[in-house]
Amino acid sequence: MTQQKYKWNDTPFKGPMARARGLGSAHDGLHHWKAQKLTAVANIPLVLWGVWSAMTLAATGASIETVYGFFHQPVNAILMILFIVSVFYHMALGLQVVIEDYVHSCKKPMLLMLVKLGTTALALASIFSVLKIAL
């Protein structure tokens, strides 16, 4: 792709490195999208495994002993932690876009912080719980 001709591209206000990167004043254009796609791909098998596991647990009554037995299997604990990381990261990215699209008041930065801190806290609480049950 050829670099689009902007009138400020050839002014001394822009350094050669900035001109080569071509990202403009946003400094970053692709990280959010790439992370969302990466977690989306990871979520496909993880979510199918999660639904299958929830069904097998529910089919046996989902007693606490069954849940402990389930997470004592390393493969289940590992997959559950991967599920939590991928799903909560994907969730944080998605909710961030929803807030950016609809909230334009002074609440916006607060909500964005709430989403980031909240999803991190919930993910951490879930991972800690899985580890406590599994170990």
Partner: peptide, 27 residues
């Protein structure tokens, strides 16, 4: 559905934290 799933996933967190806490919370 994405926003709904975010809210619904709180149930998964509840289940895991309750199961790690004690039998009564899990019940």
């Amino acid at each position: 559905s994405g926003v709904g799933l975010s809210v619904g996933t709180l149930m998964l967190v509840w289940m895991l934290v309750a199961a790690a806490t004690d039998e009564e919370s899990y019940k």
